[in-house]
């Protein structure tokens, strides 16, 4: 039993949950009042959009690419949600669907021309930002009532962010880790040649994964305006960095299709909580992103240690 518990494989899989648990325990210790319905709700409010953006990024990372435009993209969908979706719902839905379509197209472009995804998505970040500014030149707009209702819903006993995060994690876990086609999609990141040799279309898998990335990006934007009520083109600029950090904190690897949806959501929660933790520690909010960077480095260092152990055994 001990052998299993100290095996690198187990340690690796438990790391994301352990990071979150340590952070949460520290918060509860410093500020016991947070151990309540409203305490948790308040601290984890923004966990839902961040978790969704992280899941979006994870889909792109699964096929060995990286999306540097997810932040501005979430911003754009938030802007669409707070304007078109309210004034002309049908047009709003069409616009959001078109965004997902563009994502699928990007996947195809990256695959056909063998382009570095970093540069392509970098270019797209300008495009998304530009579209946001066109749609909503100044901060404002108004979130649809139904989205606000969903995001403001109060479940008994367990706060909404926890239920939402759990649902997201389980649904994506089911789809990507347990469905039969999910195995093929992850395989396309692990060994594309093998997937090609087994007769699958790599183009299709790349397009689908990009489209899923776009889909969760849309959800992230909509859930975000459900919390903020209004939108702004720059509302989610930080999300690019958050989403990458979340995937890595969640145990995902940059290449090789080794990702974990549950881990990614845990990573997103960890990032969200860092802010509260620093406030309770009475550390200036100036250090918030620094602390996030620090946590990222510590987790990566732990992972490097586990890997070394793995290499030795």
């Amino acid at each position: 039993m001990w052998a299993y518990l100290s095996s690198p494989r187990f340690l690796r899989s438990i790391l994301p949950a352990a990071s979150l648990a340590v952070l949460l325990a520290a918060i509860f210790y410093i500020q016991p009042r947070t151990m309540s319905y409203f305490g948790l709700k308040l601290m984890l409010q923004y966990a839902v959009p961040i978790a969704l953006a992280t899941i979006a990024q994870m889909h792109i990372i699964t096929v060995n690419d990286l999306d540097l435009s997810i932040g501005p993209f979430v911003g754009l969908t938030a802007c669409i949600g707070a304007t078109l979706l309210v004034s002309t719902p049908l047009l709003g839905l069409l616009a959001l669907a078109a965004c997902i379509g563009v994502y699928a197209g990007l996947g195809a472009l990256v695959y056909w021309r063998n382009l570095p995804s970093i540069v392509v998505t970098l270019g797209m970040s300008f495009v998304w930002m530009g579209l946001s500014v066109l749609i909503l030149p100044t901060p404002g707009g108004k979130a649809p009532v139904w989205i606000k209702a969903i995001m403001g819903y109060e479940f008994p006993f367990i706060p909404l962010p926890i239920i939402a995060a759990t649902t997201i994690a389980l649904v994506v876990h089911q789809g990507l880790m347990h469905s039969s086609y999910g195995a093929v999609l992850r395989g396309a990141g692990g060994n594309p040649k093998a997937i090609g040799r087994a007769g699958w279309s790599l183009l299709k898998s790349k397009m689908l994964m990009y489209a899923l990335g776009g889909f969760f990006g849309v959800l992230s934007g909509l859930s975000l305006i459900g919390l903020t009520s209004a939108a702004d083109a720059h509302i989610a600029d930080r999300y690019t960095l958050y989403s990458i950090a979340g995937v890595i904190l969640g145990g995902g690897e940059f290449v090789g299709g080794r990702v974990s949806p549950i881990g990614a959501v845990l990573g997103a929660l960890t990032l969200t909580l860092t802010g509260s933790f620093l406030i309770f520690m009475k550390i200036s909010p100036d250090w918030q992103i620094g602390a996030q960077g620090g946590i990222l480095i510590i987790v990566l260092a732990l992972r490097a240690l586990i890997k070394r152990k793995e290499a030795m055994s």
């Binding site: 039969s180 195995a183 093929v184 992850r186 395989g187 990141g189 692990g190 060994n191 093998a194 997937i195 087994a198 699958w200 090789g256 299709g257 080794r258």
Partner: peptide, 13 residues
């Protein structure tokens, strides 16, 4: 084989 998949998942592929 895809190194990130399990034995059973590789069969599925």
């Amino acid at each position: 084989l895809c190194p990130n998949l399990t034995v059973a998942e590789n069969v599925r592929v």
